[in-house]
Amino acid sequence: MPSFDIVSEVDLSEAENAIQNVTREISTRYDFKGSKSSVEMKDGVITIFADDDLKLRQMHEILQGNMQKRGIEPGSLDYQKEEPAAGQSVRQRVLIKQGIDKELGKKIVKAIKGGKFKVQAAIQGDSLRITGKKRDDLQEVIAFVKGMKLEQPMQYQNFRD
């Protein structure tokens, strides 16, 4: 019986490479000359240190650009609330979304069942398993989920006949 998995994963080694590119770009840019702005990543959490709000916004653009170059979509970055740091500087944490949480999983399963597709959808931890009798039904579900405009990027893996 054909099946596939819907997952939402980010390659953390690619994210680490993007962070290194951001650090390199900040060190060479003229508008960051003499600035104490920096970016670091630990355990899937990116921490941005900036001198002020303007530099923080610029670092967001640099980060998103470098992440996209590495194949990581901006929807997989979850920006947390800005925190004041020493003096005028600000700090912001950015979480990298890994996996599909229960609420989003339930929403996708409900939409698939409401679409009257001839498939079964099951939540398996932080992924969804879609099973059907025909390959065409599964391909219709993939097109349907892509058209749902979810805030988190999805990947379709493990397609089996």
Rank of each mutant, 00 (worst) to 15 (best):
P2R: 05
V7C: 11
S8Q: 09
E14V: 06
A18Y: 01
I19N: 00
V22A: 10
V22K: 09
T23F: 00
R24P: 04
E25P: 02
E25L: 10
S27D: 14
Y30R: 00
Y30H: 01
F32H: 01
G34K: 03
K36C: 05
M41N: 00
G44H: 02
I46P: 00
I46Y: 05
T47L: 09
T47G: 05
F49R: 15
F49Y: 15
D51E: 15
L54A: 14
L54P: 03
R57V: 14
Q58F: 11
E61A: 13
I62R: 04
Q64R: 12
M67K: 01
Q68D: 02
R70D: 08
E73V: 09
G75A: 10
L77G: 03
Y79M: 00
Y79F: 10
E83V: 04
A85H: 09
A85M: 11
A86S: 15
Q88L: 13
Q88G: 15
V90C: 08
Q92T: 02
Q92M: 04
R93F: 07
V94D: 03
L95C: 01
G99I: 02
G99R: 04
I100F: 02
K102V: 10
K102W: 10
E103W: 03
G105T: 07
K106T: 14
K107R: 08
K107L: 06
I108N: 00
I108G: 00
V109S: 09
V109K: 15
A111C: 05
G114F: 12
G114Y: 12
G114L: 12
K116C: 02
F117D: 09
K118N: 07
Q120H: 12
Q120F: 05
Q124S: 13
Q124A: 13
Q124I: 13
L128C: 05
L128A: 01
T131D: 06
D136T: 14
D137G: 09
Q139W: 02
Q139H: 08
Q139E: 11
Q139L: 14
F144L: 06
G147Y: 05
L150C: 05
Q152V: 14
Y156K: 07
R160I: 04
D161A: 11
D161K: 09
